[in-house]
Nucleic acid binder design. Structure first.
Lengths: 214, 214
DNA sequence: AAGATCATCTTGACGCCGTTCAGATCGGTG
DNA sequence: CACCGATCTGAACGGCGTCAAGATGATCTT
């Protein structure tokens, strides 16, 4: 009885359960939020027993890491798109930041999982910083292009970190009710994001440049 | 049998269980971290049954809110102390930010509970923004004093929000391993914090001022 | 083609969790 | 003193993460 091994027409061995579990987790995150994301729920959603995931992930945390990895990939693409559609170097950082926060707003539960994983391991996800075209490197190169070659490497690095911190902070606080009145006066969410982010992430040399020689 | 109602010499009615539970929760947070903070563990630590907390808190979330409230209070005091020990207006914001991040570093589990509660309710804790001497108002007044009266209210507000986002972001990312090499070149943790925060939270008018007329 | 091997999946169990409810206890009010 | 309402206990429920033992079937060997 090769077919119909269970009630549905699913064979005993799934074939690609690892991917199916990650997809199921993402579906639950989008539809029911992070609090509903239990390992058992993921297994249920994927149509397997509660113990099945343990043949593909060491524990729940490792499954979440796989979900987070997909998320960082998508966020990186959104940032790249923002960079490429903004040729003006002075505006590019802000636009990348807006794309960052908008991603976190479009996928709040996923973003939460992404950062919770990073916090648990006390590091940004590997691959985000190492690869040449990684999101982190793109931000750094944007600063470098704007600042010019006379700015020290350490300042470029600091500016990148500062911008990242600011974007993350805003991503987590953007939905706070206290900001609503201010948003109305700034043309809605996007105007608010642009206004806040334009205050951030510029290092001293770039500041002087932005403010002009006078 | 008024005394020795249980094995210990504790009366049947605790007397101040609400406070005892909050203290127990803080003890667990400090000693075992956020993952160990179950409602049952708190009750155990306080020496009562698992159901006892429900006479003082609607659910686990409400207990955590009480813990968070204590945390925000302590953080506010740390920020006030930093403000008062830094008369120079140009350096004051950075020093308040350093105090903020250092608090989150000294009490990481507590800080996590504080922000998780805020995120669940989509608002900064009440009382943090309303009171005249609240932490938020102190930051805003610091910006106002530095910027002078000619800067628009909305810019002061944006700068305050931007600075808060940056401090929160840095608080959550400060322990990331990737920053370690950079910290070594900047005089350790505190030098790193000061360097990053000096990049942040300044609004355009203040930037111009900071960079001088030339 | 037949049998052995091994990864994959299920079943059932364990202890912990948050929460609820009926009942025990006790301080304060009439 | 008798009562009442607030407080606390004990037992229970379903859900959770995880593990061990056994069932299943794809693949490799001969």
């Amino acid at each position: 009885m090769r077919e119909a091994a269970t009630v549905e027409n699913r064979p005993y061995h799934h074939g690609d359960l690892r991917r199916a579990l990650v997809d199921a987790a993402r579906r639950i995150l989008e539809n029911e939020g992070p609090s509903a994301l239990s390992l058992r729920a993921v297994a249920r959603e994927a149509g397997v027993s509660p113990a099945a995931p343990y043949h593909h992930f060491k524990d729940k945390g490792e499954l979440l890491e796989a979900v987070a990895f997909v998320g960082w990939d998508a966020l990186g693409e959104a940032m790249t798109a923002a960079k490429e559609r903004t040729p003006d170097l002075g505006a590019r950082m802000t636009e990348i930041g807006v794309a960052y926060v908008q991603f976190s707003q479009a996928h709040p539960a996923l973003y939460r999982v992404m950062y919770d994983c990073s916090r648990d391991k006390d590091e940004l996800p590997e691959g985000l910083q190492d690869k040449e075209d990684s999101a982190y490197c793109q931000v750094r190169e944007t600063f470098r292009a704007f600042a010019g070659p006379e700015v020290a490497d350490v300042d470029i690095e600091l500016a990148t970190i500062a911008a990242w911190c600011a974007a993350h902070g805003l991503a987590e606080m953007n939905s706070f009710k206290q900001f609503d009145p201010l948003k109305q006066g700034l043309g809605g969410e996007e105007g608010f994001l642009r206004a806040v982010l334009s205050h951030l992430g510029m290092f001293p040399a770039a500041r002087a440049k932005a403010n002009g020689p006078g």
